[in-house]
């Protein structure tokens, strides 16, 4: 981490990206700037940059994921890295020791970048302490999903110009969501007013001390919002454990045109995907003019290129 070739200031002083928590606002802005460039690269016919040429990137997914894994794979490839995907089915993994064993095995293959998703909160941190390369958290349990928050911020900034001063509502299953946690931290750091809206059963304890405004009524919570972020509700939580039924959830917490009308005019709608149409979001809204959902996917590749590039700049020998 001695030689810094990046011409940008400020530099990105991190070896890993384990969460938004450890980032300073200027780190976040640096990544967003890099990502803006990556968007341009991705929109060219020649979608290649050579910053990761010769580097090895391993995507280690202990939890199934289509979009995040392919997004990281594409990002690495567009930067010229050799990318390998490793799917480790959760059932075949015995926690703890095996995770360390896996880390040691992978480390011996001398990767430069390791992208990890794991169902257990903190698993990525544990791995990061055991390997010699840079580690990117692609989602660990209900803890953090930093690249999702970054891509959301990128999407918002490209539409609104700025994040500070905006009012952003994060709606739905806050309790189990790593996306919500990363977004709350990131948006707060950049000066947005963050609200969470959910039935009380889907709010985590301590939420009132997280520096966010808490609402259980969607109409009240959406009043004056510029951005409405919907979260996915897992199927097993819909039938009586946390909410009574899909129809009741949709009626009180699903985003439809009527509820969205309480937000500011032209408020933008986001969703990390995959969506449950008719559960947390009405199809007409998901596919409507205020929706940024498809654009978020494009920004996902760009932000991952930015993250990989920023970390690669700090790799030894660079």
């Amino acid at each position: 981490m001695t030689a810094q070739t990046s011409h940008r200031a400020p530099i990105f002083p991190h070896r890993h990206l384990l969460g938004i928590e450890a980032l300073q606002p200027q780190d976040i802005l640096h990544l967003l700037d890099l990502a803006d460039e990556a968007v341009e690269v991705s929109r060219q016919v020649e979608k290649q940059k050579a910053v990761l040429r010769g580097r090895t990137q391993i995507n280690l997914f202990f939890e199934a994921s289509t979009r995040t894994q392919s997004s990281f794979e594409l990002a690495g490839k567009r930067l010229g890295a050799d990318v390998m995907n490793m799917q480790v089915s959760a059932s075949s993994v015995k926690k703890g020791e095996t995770l360390i064993d896996t880390a040691a095995t992978l480390n011996a293959m001398r990767p430069d970048l390791l992208v990890v998703r794991h169902h257990a909160a903190g698993a990525v941190h544990l791995l990061a302490r055991k390997v010699g390369c840079s580690v990117v958290n692609a989602g660990d349990g209900a803890h953090e999903h930093p690249t999702q928050a970054l891509l959301d911020a990128l999407t918002i900034r490209r539409h609104k110009g700025n994040i500070g001063g905006l009012t952003v509502a994060i709606c739905g299953d806050i309790r189990h969501s790593r996306v919500a946690r990363s977004n709350i931290i990131l948006l707060s750091k950049l000066g947005a007013r963050v609200r969470v809206i959910a039935p009380s059963t889907l709010l985590p304890s301590g939420i009132h001390n997280m520096g966010v405004e808490v609402f259980t009524n969607m109409r009240e919570g959406l009043k004056g919002c510029d951005i409405v972020m919907m979260l996915r509700l897992q199927r097993e939580r819909m039938s009586g454990a946390f909410v009574p039924s899909v129809r009741e959830y949709f009626k009180y917490h699903g985003l439809d045109a009527e509820k969205l009308s309480y937000a500011n005019e032209g408020a933008l709608v986001m969703h990390p995907g995959p969506m449950n149409r008719g559960v947390e979001i009405a199809a007409e809204i998901a596919d409507g003019p205020q929706s940024l959902i498809r654009e978020q996917v494009e920004m996902g590749v760009a932000i991952r290129m930015a993250v990989l590039e920023a970390l690669a700049n700090n790799l030894p020998d660079n």
Binding site: S239, G240, A241, V243, P244, S245, R247, E248, K251, Y252
Partner: peptide, 15 residues
């Protein structure tokens, strides 16, 4: 309060 009074799944309190 719960579906079928079974004490397992919450009923549709709002509806």
């Amino acid at each position: 309060l719960t579906k079928g009074l079974k004490g397992e799944e919450m009923s549709e309190i709002g509806l």
